[in-house]
Simulated assay, not measured.
Amino acid sequence: MQLFAFFSLFAVVRAVVIPAVQPSGHSKSTINADAVPQGKNHTINGVLTYVSLPKQKFDPTTAVLLLTDVFGLPSPDNLLLADEWAAAGFATYAPDYLNGDALPSDGLDNVTEWEVNHGEAQTTPPLLAVISALKLRGVKQIATTGYCFGGLYTTRLVQNNTIAVGTMAHPSSLNVPTDFELVKAQSHVPIEINNAELDTGFTPSLAVVTDGVLGDGQYAPGYFRRQFDGVGHGFAVRANASDPVQVAAKQGAFDTSLAFIKKHLK
């Protein structure tokens, strides 16, 4: 597969690059100590990948590719989220496209320094390696769900028509509206976004700008965005179990993405 192409476009709205949100700006988790990830780590085409399969019968020609936030596979929240997708009936793959160097969830706020070694040149090859391997194994339809940092790569895969459908939540590192202008110009992949009212990255105002590009039927393949109020960045991955607003938002984001994927898979 070819590497992702660069694209520049004059837009009415000034383009804004969404910054990666510092670790302290992510929603905090209160995972039950009894919660144990059900999947297993496998090496797929040289890339460590967390694989979670449905317990019931499933379609082996369809898969969900889960693109994690900056905390990667060491974060139990990401693994349990992959398990949720498997429980919904999809073979789910979460590749370590961070190359064994995820950001510690309890580390210092050094995401800017970390990003230097985690640009698209470093993270794209392992991602494409897993996709290529899945297709060789007979997977014909890949639905991607990306969270935070993973939202950028979901967008790239949509732009290049590499996947069948793409969803994301509180994306970071995107250029708005330029990246979505590119989606509109050359993609035929349906796209869905869950955003947070209190996000300091993909803010509600940037979400409205995105609607201006893809909404109101402008993007024929399919576009949907849902905002969740009272929550911030990372809400679709982590929630405080004692906060009903956070719990409902996390579940709502999952349900919205699941419904969108089911609607648009052939």
Rank of each mutant, 00 (worst) to 15 (best):
V64G: 15
F6G: 06
W114T: 13
K40G: 03
P19H: 08
I44S: 06
T43D: 12
D77H: 04
V139L: 06
I31N: 09
G72D: 03
G150D: 02
G119A: 06
G39V: 12
V21L: 07
V16S: 05
D69M: 05
D34I: 01
N110P: 01
C148I: 09
V36K: 15
T61S: 15
N99Y: 05
P60A: 11
V64N: 14
F58M: 05
P37N: 07
C148K: 09
L80G: 03
P74D: 14
Q141H: 15
L48R: 13
A82Q: 06
P125I: 01
A121G: 08
T43K: 14
I31C: 00
D34V: 00
A63F: 06
Q122I: 10
I18W: 01
W85N: 07
P60E: 09
K40I: 11
L81S: 04
A5F: 03
F71Y: 08
D83W: 01
T61H: 11
F71V: 07
L73G: 04
Y93A: 08
P125Y: 02
R14I: 00
H26Q: 08
E113C: 03
A11E: 12
K135Y: 07
A143M: 03
S132F: 07
D34S: 12
I131S: 11
A82I: 12
V130A: 09
P23V: 01
S75Q: 07
Y50P: 06
L81M: 11
L98E: 12
Y147N: 03
A133Q: 14
I18S: 02
G46L: 04
V64W: 08
D101Q: 14
A33P: 00
G89Y: 07
L65S: 10
A88K: 06
H118M: 11
D69Q: 06
E120C: 00
P23Q: 02
V64H: 13
L103F: 01
